[in-house]
Design a protein around this nucleic acid. Sequence first.
DNA 1: CGCACCCATCAGAGCGCTCTCATTCCGGTA
DNA 2: TACCGGAATGAGAGCGCTCTGATGGGTGCG
Lengths: 337, 337
Amino acid sequence: MPGNKPARMEDVAHAAGVSRALVSLVFRDSPKVSPARRERVLAAAQQLGYQPNAMARNLASRTTRTLGVLMNDLHNPFFADIYDGVETAASALGYQLLLTAGRYRHGSENAAIDTMLQHRVDGMMLISPRLSTAHIMAVGRQAPLVVIGRVIDSPSVDSIMADERLGSLAALRHLAELGHRNIVHIDGGRGAGAEPRRAGYIHAMNELALGEPDLVPGDFTEMSGVHAAMSLLQRPALPTAIFASNDMVAIGVMDTLSDAGVRVPEDVSVVGYDNTAIAHVRPISLTTIDQPRVEMGDMAVHLLHQRLKASRTKSVTHLVQPTLVTRRTTAPPRQEG
Amino acid sequence: MPGNKPARMEDVAHAAGVSRALVSLVFRDSPKVSPARRERVLAAAQQLGYQPNAMARNLASRTTRTLGVLMNDLHNPFFADIYDGVETAASALGYQLLLTAGRYRHGSENAAIDTMLQHRVDGMMLISPRLSTAHIMAVGRQAPLVVIGRVIDSPSVDSIMADERLGSLAALRHLAELGHRNIVHIDGGRGAGAEPRRAGYIHAMNELALGEPDLVPGDFTEMSGVHAAMSLLQRPALPTAIFASNDMVAIGVMDTLSDAGVRVPEDVSVVGYDNTAIAHVRPISLTTIDQPRVEMGDMAVHLLHQRLKASRTKSVTHLVQPTLVTRRTTAPPRQEG
DNA sequence: CGCACCCATCAGAGCGCTCTCATTCCGGTA
DNA sequence: TACCGGAATGAGAGCGCTCTGATGGGTGCG
């Protein structure tokens, strides 16, 4: 019958015939409790269904050993992978986790951060936050902070980010090695990470002596891939390869091309970015760029731990290495002429 | 500079030149504070970066207005959709949310539930829990509980579940209307929801006079779809339609069929189940069964709210209606002979 | 047999808030 | 001018726990 009050430490103590303090010691795993008493206390607690009150505990101990995680998009498997890394590391280091979801809205992000602050988390991780840099820096002044997916230049904020330029370079190098020279990039517009991907593409085109960069506008959506492909199909000749700013764009492109009778990879090679869950599905089998997401999550926790435990005060930025995943959408260009 | 203690109510009171109690009233939105004073307090709080201590507040007020959500699989967009509904409803009703992730491991699920209990949530929602029914009922005795994706027959636990049998029926009816009579079901094995889907298939085959049910074993994975398709290809004749127990299985099936030169939907129609994100991707365009996930989340919150606010004590089971989403993997059977 | 010493146990003072109840301060009324 | 009522404010007792410092009861040693 829910409704009757949960048992308190006092009740357990009484049932076990010991003092409240001893029960407290037992629940804090103190070594200074005799096995016999420990047993007795545990049995009484079990019997009463006692669960220590986290609020009282945290209030009295002035510490929560809890880290806050702001996930903006529960729908994005990207976030889930990061969380896997976070969870594993946190439980290994003995931290609890307070999860909040921002849903990409400024108000929600702020509310989520306030919630974490009000619960006095020891530190927080913001995954792809949309808030302004100034705002994030202000939050960083209240609690140790790690931002994933953005670089914030502030002494109290650490950053973890994939080296997008390197990812672009890997994609282009792969295409170049296959013999492609005529490579178009479909842009990610103003989306997170779009700019460095584009810069990496431009840089790599020069680096690898592949001629003039050839950019088609886009915005990270499947639809923009469709539009980009349509505009490409208007040209007198198609490029031999397309480097899309993410997997969704690549899928839109491939879909449109195949409607137009253009085969991938025989006629055109396509490379995506992000290695989302869809990319590995066999009918798609998209060659793409993978980021070590689990590792990023793990790293975030350790960065926080360093600040907390070793009281590091200098800020750190980790640039993480993306890797190429070769699947079935890339092949040597068609020999013609 | 993080490290200096966060401001307390006392500090705000002092800065604003009022008593602690008045600050408390302001932060609880009490109407009995003059606008002038309220302003002053708010300004002082702002100035000090004051965030009320949630632990102290909840401890003193003996209530948290927080609902716990156990998500088992952050990777599954299914869960994210449910969470959308939960979030919207919760914020409308003024509840905070405490998210935990169980990762389908018994230990983690238990730990997550303990965490929620220790934080004295007013109620909890378990999404597709793996724990035993007896265990869930025990938890239900500690706090109001809503289980999504399973039916628990206990007075203190409410359940929300999609009517899987109805979903199967909708799929079969669609196929029958297209003219299919020879319809195979690829089984979900012991996965959650597999049994009612199978039962619905068997029931519908009889109901619609489609002949003997024809079951191929599977287990909800893409791989099992591959195996099922291979075994089907060994038969002297393929069925004209395949009803897979979920989308992943359907994708494995389609992939294998297409490798074998069998076209979908020209030679064989395929129907999935779940309407996952992949199903709508155009190169796949899978006909499938959708469940009103957002609505399920919304409903969960309201069910809890009823228990809490209206102190309903009888348990409720909501069976939610799935719907057919027709895409491009179903067509009339080939006319032959 | 007595003493020092050590360790298990306990008492009590907060942690930062809420909430009840008492008190103060008004203007309005007779 | 004396009085009254209501709005606004303040004081103080907890909420359930942790943690410091005190207490008591064995044990080993001389």
